[in-house]
Design a protein around this nucleic acid. Sequence first.
DNA 1: CATTTTTTGATCGTTTTTGCTCGTTTTACC
DNA 2: GGTAAAACGAGCAAAAACGATCAAAAAATG
Lengths: 253, 253
Amino acid sequence: MIKEERFERIREELAKKGIVDGDELAGLLGVSRATIRRDLDALEERGFLKRTHGGAQATDPEDELPFHSKVSAYMREKRAIGLAVAALVPEGAVIGCTGGTTVMAAIKCLKGKSVTVVTNAINVAMELAPSEQAQVIVTGGSLRTRSYELVGHIADRTLGEFHLDLALIGVDGIDIERGISTYTIAEAHAAALYISQAERVWVVADHSKAGKVAPALIAPLAKVHRLVTDPGLDAGIQARLEAAGLEVIVAAS
Amino acid sequence: MIKEERFERIREELAKKGIVDGDELAGLLGVSRATIRRDLDALEERGFLKRTHGGAQATDPEDELPFHSKVSAYMREKRAIGLAVAALVPEGAVIGCTGGTTVMAAIKCLKGKSVTVVTNAINVAMELAPSEQAQVIVTGGSLRTRSYELVGHIADRTLGEFHLDLALIGVDGIDIERGISTYTIAEAHAAALYISQAERVWVVADHSKAGKVAPALIAPLAKVHRLVTDPGLDAGIQARLEAAGLEVIVAAS
DNA sequence: CATTTTTTGATCGTTTTTGCTCGTTTTACC
DNA sequence: GGTAAAACGAGCAAAAACGATCAAAAAATG
């Protein structure tokens, strides 16, 4: 394990959790705390992170990752959701996933797990490209400006060829009456396809999406098996979602 | 095990892991660390990697961050080639392009032009994603670790559905007798498909590729209409390529 | 087959990296 | 607000890696 390799691992860990602990890193990488502190110094020098007592935290999520993956509000919450999802995904699973920032957070945590990921989002594919364990299938299709998602008949046809253990759907709204929804028809169409091909459906969304309805409806709540969200979720809404038969996982932040 | 073969193996390892360890390579290739160090020196000289204490790391062609002043091999030349290609591509063209750093350089220069790009390289797609003018079609397929290319029957089928005005092919070797070639069979296969679907074929390659033959042959020279390269091209080789009916464009640097 | 050239492995002094210790600073807790 | 625990920075010695040099081995050449 050479220095640059450690740097890489530290940055990866940082992308996953947003905050890293010196002791933990020392154990994980098999070096002393002194070395970790020196590494963190070097990485701070290069602007990749900010030192804190006991560890370090990610610098403002603008440029912390390759290929300007769009980040946004509720980054901390999304990270927690991502970690929770990764912990729940079994080794070897075949996962279909849409684009979206919350899904991306989960994908970051899946690096290093041996799973098969089928996706129509090229930023998801890009994120997993360096991983040796993960097998990635890209649907193909016409690239939508800004959202990094592939749509159209090519995407549809490819998706139809796969059976998924799990569909990981990022949404812009989740509502008792109207189910899950998103902003554009093309994305909703892709999400619905994932759902029709999957054995189980997990929705990932930060708490701000609860109770909202976005213009393009994807599917009713009955199609969804599990919602992974953050502790900001309103207790009343949670109770009603659970009453509707949804398993709600609240990620500890 | 001869030197070139070791170079090949080292580059392979580097492509897979991004970072290599000297000791590990010595064991893997059955030679001493001194030899590995010399190999790494030679490869750094050619710009394929960056030496570090204990090993080396891949020069990431995307990494244009200020502190990593060192970029991939022949970057200046590739930029010049990219500019020349962009100037030659007519507005509205349908272009198929493979992956590879030289192609990427050209794609960067195509941003803002209203063209349709069909590609199996997700880094190419990523680069063009923010562009409002460019229309991007991604073939889909199975993602190759670290090379960002999609391969397999999905990619083949999608490519077969398009007619291209122009195929933009990045190669690792161009030779009078053996034609154009690349390092892996999968890439060669994809390149050959682009060629079969295209009206015209342009090869982009820096001068170091001239006269070389890589393991996986793509097509004979007769299939290629134009080579865009940099002024470093050997005059004798250029004369022979032109005698073989190839239009050689030398990009002013 | 002999000779020349290239390549490889080994050695040695030097530089970098790493882990440890010790006194100081920060954080957490009562 | 005071005290204990944890983390920090600096300095130092051991370990690992480096560059340079040289001789042996392998390959190419005539």
